[in-house]
Computed example of a mutant assay.
Amino acid sequence: MSSGATTQQDGFPNESIESSGFDSSNLIEKLLTGLAFFLLGLAILPLGLVISYVIVKGLGRFNLALFTEIPPTAMAEGGGVASAIAGTLLMVGIAAVISIPIGIGAGIYLSEFSSKKIAKWIRFATNVLSGVPSIIVGIFAYSVVVLTMDKFSTLAGGFALAILMLPIIVRTTDEALQLVPKDVRWASVGVGASSFHTVLQIVIPAAIPAILTGITLSLARAAGETAPLLFTVIFAQSWPDGIIDETVPSMSVLIYNFATAPYQNQQELAWAAAFILVLLVLLASALARWFGQKATY
């Protein structure tokens, strides 16, 4: 009797139950995986549509003149966005000079030298700053720089973009340094190096690829901002003259102005400029991903 019960217990009925249970869980797993891919496709679809539409509309004016000529006047034909590219690079360069040293220095202080209580509040303030709308940053830059200098200027535009770049650089630098293993620091201190030399010669070089990732992403964001520049510089088609010039062309403001213009030539240039900005953002994202893969801890 016991032998028969054992045989029945170890026989096919129980195996079929286990097999049926395995098939059911496998089916649920496949359904959830399919649902996840479907939702991922829905999330990516708007991005794909936007990029495709910009490429279709902007590719027709993608030629050499686009990068060598200045934007045309209202009813003129032809032209390009060369001066707007130069103005954008100038203001982003000013923003980088201001924000990168401050951001990296703040990130190093947070990760290596600050107390936990101070670091907690500074990280909170950085997170809040990263969520501030760009138009508020533009108003702040207008109040601090434009009203103080009593004029619009390239410097004011770069200052506004630097504020937008700063929290990204601080957060990525802080997180990059925290990812460096503690054992590396202890080994350096154990052979007689000071904390300052350990951070400067061991920790920072190990975190440079991740820090460069944050810098690249912040530059991409600054290049595409429009609202702060509406409060800090006056748009013009001519070439920029310097950091205190009142009239400075920029890609984002050119798109904002020309896209709503009643002239087809300017609308086409707006789409071409948008295409260039999309390419810059894609390039920056690719560089950020490449720098991130180079990080070794």
Rank of each mutant, 00 (worst) to 15 (best):
151 K>T: 15
152 F>E: 03
153 S>H: 15
154 T>E: 12
155 L>Y: 12
156 A>L: 12
157 G>N: 04
159 F>K: 11
159 F>I: 08
160 A>S: 12
160 A>F: 11
161 L>A: 10
162 A>V: 04
163 I>W: 04
164 L>A: 15
164 L>C: 14
165 M>F: 06
165 M>A: 06
165 M>I: 01
166 L>A: 02
166 L>N: 08
168 I>S: 11
168 I>P: 00
169 I>P: 04
170 V>C: 07
170 V>H: 08
171 R>A: 09
171 R>W: 05
171 R>Q: 13
172 T>F: 11
172 T>P: 01
174 D>C: 09
176 A>L: 06
178 Q>C: 07
180 V>N: 08
181 P>M: 07
182 K>S: 15
184 V>K: 06
184 V>P: 01
185 R>N: 09
185 R>I: 03
190 G>C: 05
191 V>I: 15
194 S>A: 05
195 S>Q: 11
196 F>I: 11
196 F>M: 14
196 F>V: 15
197 H>C: 05
197 H>E: 12
197 H>P: 03
199 V>H: 06
199 V>T: 15
200 L>C: 05
200 L>E: 13
203 V>K: 12
204 I>E: 06
204 I>H: 04
206 A>S: 13
207 A>F: 06
207 A>P: 13
212 L>I: 01
213 T>V: 09
214 G>M: 04
214 G>T: 04
215 I>V: 15
216 T>Y: 00
216 T>E: 00
217 L>S: 03
217 L>Q: 10
217 L>P: 01
218 S>E: 05
218 S>L: 15
219 L>G: 03
219 L>F: 13
221 R>W: 07
221 R>G: 06
222 A>I: 10
222 A>C: 09
223 A>I: 15
223 A>D: 03
223 A>W: 04
224 G>N: 07
226 T>M: 02
226 T>E: 04
226 T>A: 12
227 A>H: 05
228 P>D: 08
228 P>V: 06
228 P>K: 15
229 L>S: 05
229 L>R: 07
230 L>P: 03
231 F>R: 10
232 T>G: 11
232 T>S: 10
233 V>R: 09
234 I>G: 08
235 F>L: 09
235 F>I: 03
236 A>W: 13
236 A>P: 00
238 S>D: 13
238 S>F: 05
240 P>I: 06
240 P>T: 05
240 P>G: 00
240 P>W: 01
241 D>Q: 11
244 I>G: 01
244 I>N: 05
245 D>K: 00
245 D>L: 01
246 E>K: 09
248 V>A: 07
248 V>Q: 10
250 S>H: 04
251 M>H: 00
252 S>N: 00
254 L>S: 00
254 L>C: 00
255 I>T: 02
255 I>L: 08
256 Y>A: 15
258 F>H: 08
259 A>R: 12
260 T>G: 13
260 T>Y: 09
260 T>E: 10
261 A>I: 10
262 P>V: 13
263 Y>F: 14
263 Y>W: 14
263 Y>E: 14
264 Q>G: 02
265 N>S: 15
267 Q>E: 00
267 Q>V: 08
268 E>P: 03
268 E>S: 08
268 E>M: 05
274 A>W: 01
274 A>S: 12
275 F>A: 04
275 F>P: 03
277 L>C: 10
277 L>P: 02
277 L>H: 05
